[in-house]
Nucleic acid binder design. Structure first.
Lengths: 250, 250
DNA sequence: AACAGCGTTTCCTAGTGGGAAACAAAGGAG
DNA sequence: CTCCTTTGTTTCCCACTAGGAAACGCTGTT
């Protein structure tokens, strides 16, 4: 058994145990000498993966695992809930549908389902967008804390990716207001020439917006007629996900 | 950096990353060759601590962490919430106050605060009790699924620790009913000669009882007058914890 | 007071994880 | 469409880390 497996075994064993376990019983069960088990446990305690009860000297799972578990839970919930919606929309529109998440002061493409027409728009999962350009970035910016937005804008120089990228601070804040009042954002070649996108906010159970649903593709396929239809589709899809996440619109 | 530290670093990095990370970027950041990082990641994937996106080949936190995180969360919440209550009760009664948790078909002493009068009753943290004897065991038995209780009783031979230990099945089920109707359990030398205990149920936010509050000590200190007072104290303490856990009594 | 059991420390050495390089596969550039 | 870069994966060998054994200090029991 490698050390990595040993670490996993220890953590799992501590997790399924009723409460606390000592070095000796862990070593006996895993079949190692307690010296080695102790060394590993000490490191795990330092890293917060395990806590040691100072009075009993026994070990249990630690707060670092809680944090990581929460991360997994959040990701799983939103993707699991969102996937059927994305699939349906992708099928109906034949375009790429994606989920964007705000991570700190940036927007990130967290998940996407490609449309059947495979003209690549090279938006890879994990790609980061600024909050001033593109359907995902602008929407998540619009629903971000305005004070924080002003801070960001005053500190960073907005780069003009295309002719349509908004770089003026006041113009951007106005655009944010429009987005909030309409309930959706539109990007017309703001991040990249030839691309078009529509996005709508996803509300979590606290009513906060930290992710959004986005429909995007080559501009030539986004005719006015289609866009008029698709805006409702995106808003409805985002609402559906919001409700499934436990959002209560009041 | 030892392998254990590497594992922890990788997990934490994957947790704080916006979404997914690849072998190369992880190896670059941690300063190791990607071959070693890859080997470790492969093992972590096998153990469920990490998941690999099959289409992007990139890595993220896995379901095993979710399970462990949940365990930590549950334990932390109940202990954190319960500790002040236990301290106050221990201070008022000068006896030992403890939290029992049902783990499968047994009761376990999860946490305790010793009274100042240190006559040892050797109930160590982690000790297991049967569901038929003692204030903790009986209470958690009484609020357990009755079908399951009947199964257990039919399969296991109840051992008579003291004269007062209930070993007859029907007598025990009757005692359970009394406990549920009164809302507390009393043990008079059931597990050990000379010990006395009072316990009351703790309800979680779903209204389920899987833990209880228990006040225990040497029998000679549990006079009738004191017990009459302390029953209310235990019930109130347990209620307080239940409410803090999010229980809604309707 | 002696003992037994636990967590902890130390030391040495065998086995394992790290480094380097090469392979496979996928994407981007032209 | 093809070349080229980049990334995930595999292989091999060696340094060094993790495991074994024994001993220490401490707590609690008899």
């Amino acid at each position: 058994m490698s050390n990595t497996e040993k670490v996993m075994w220890l953590l799992k064993r501590l997790g399924e145990a009723p409460y606390e376990l000592g070095v000796t019983e862990l070593a006996d069960e895993i079949g190692y000498e307690k010296s080695g088990v102790f060394k590993t446990l000490k490191l795990l305690v330092q890293g917060g993966f395990v806590v040691q009860n100072q009075s009993t000297k026994k070990y249990s799972v630690g707060p670092a695992l809680y944090r990581l578990g929460t991360v997994y839970g959040e990701r799983k919930v939103i993707l699991q809930v969102a996937e059927p919606v994305l699939k349906a929309m992708s099928y109906m529109t034949e375009e790429t549908v994606s989920i964007g998440i705000r991570e700190g002061d940036d927007a990130i493409l967290a998940y996407k389902i490609e449309g059947p027409i495979s003209i690549r728009l090279e938006n890879r999962i994990g790609r980061m967008y600024p909050l001033n350009a593109g359907a995902i970035g602008k929407l998540l910016g619009a629903y971000h804390n305005e004070e924080r937005i002003r801070e960001i804008l005053s500190q960073t120089e907005l780069t003009k990716n295309t002719q349509n990228t908004i770089v003026d601070q006041e113009e951007l804040l106005l655009e944010y207001e429009i987005i909030r009042s309409r309930g959706y954002a539109i990007s017309d070649e703001e991040n990249r020439e030839g691309s078009f996108g529509i996005s709508a906010p996803i509300y979590d159970q606290n009513g906060d917006v930290w992710s959004c649903l986005c429909l995007a593709g080559p501009k030539e396929r986004f005719t006015k007629k289609k866009v008029d239809n698709w805006i409702g589709l995106v808003i409805n899809g985002a609402n559906e996900i919001s409700l499934k996440l436990g959002y209560n619109p009041n």
